[in-house]
């Protein structure tokens, strides 16, 4: 997994609430057995018409946002299906950070497995960053994971909370399966004990 340390870039505004993972990557693209190549179908049904032509109004089709690395989004981003294809598609497009007032639980966890930083901020701060995002290239946003801050275009600094273990893994690009396997003796011991106490499992 690629590390996440700092990022300065253009943010795309998506103020719609409840953006679900079916919107992020519709089901027809879940038939892949790979993780890569989903960026072109990110937000497919919002981004392309029935004939596959770009819908000019859609934010990521606008010249200012075609290379956006940050999304500023409405409440409850990533709700719905557990499909990790959603963060895979965001990452493949080039999005490394999503800022919202809230995220759905499974999507939130999936981001951290893919080097994407989801940031939760209060409504007024998301609103301020949404205004920055609407200015495109004229209002770049900076995200610093180590110091847990987002800096808006006017220099306003917003602190965010993040789980220490998730931060550690993201900062260092760690594979958590490897980390868990270091605890294999504990897993062995648990299984031996459970075989006694709950043998039917």
């Amino acid at each position: 997994m690629e590390k996440f340390t700092t990022l300065t870039g253009v943010a795309a505004p998506m103020p719609l609430v409840n953006i679900d993972t079916d919107m992020i990557i519709p089901k027809q693209f879940l038939k892949t057995i790979k993780r890569s190549g989903l960026g072109k179908n990110l937000f497919d049904e919002m981004r392309y018409d029935n004939d596959g032509n770009e819908i000019p109004d859609f934010v990521l089709n606008q010249p200012a946002y075609r290379n956006a690395q940050i999304l500023v989004a409405g409440d409850n981003f990533g709700c719905g299906s557990s499909r990790e294809h959603a963060p895979w598609a965001l990452l493949d497009f080039g999005i490394r950070c999503v800022i919202s007032t809230s995220f759905a639980d499974i999507f939130y966890n999936n981001c951290f497995k893919n080097g994407i930083l989801p940031i939760v901020l209060p409504q007024d701060q998301v609103d301020a960053l949404m205004d920055d995002a609407r200015k495109g290239e004229n209002a770049r946003i900076t995200v610093d994971l180590d110091s847990q801050t987002v800096t808006g275009a006017d220099g306003s600094v917003y602190a965010f909370e993040i789980d220490s273990f998730k931060k550690h893994c993201l900062l260092n690009g760690l594979d958590d399966i490897g980390l868990s396997l270091e605890k294999v003796a504990s897993i062995d011991a648990f299984e031996a004990q459970a075989a006694q106490s709950r043998p039917w499992v």
Binding site: R35, P87, N109, N110, K113, I177, L181
Partner: peptide, 12 residues
């Protein structure tokens, strides 16, 4: 869970 976690559960 997501697919990365599926792999984690399969392995551990």
């Amino acid at each position: 869970i997501g697919t990365s976690e599926v792999e984690h559960v399969l392995a551990t």
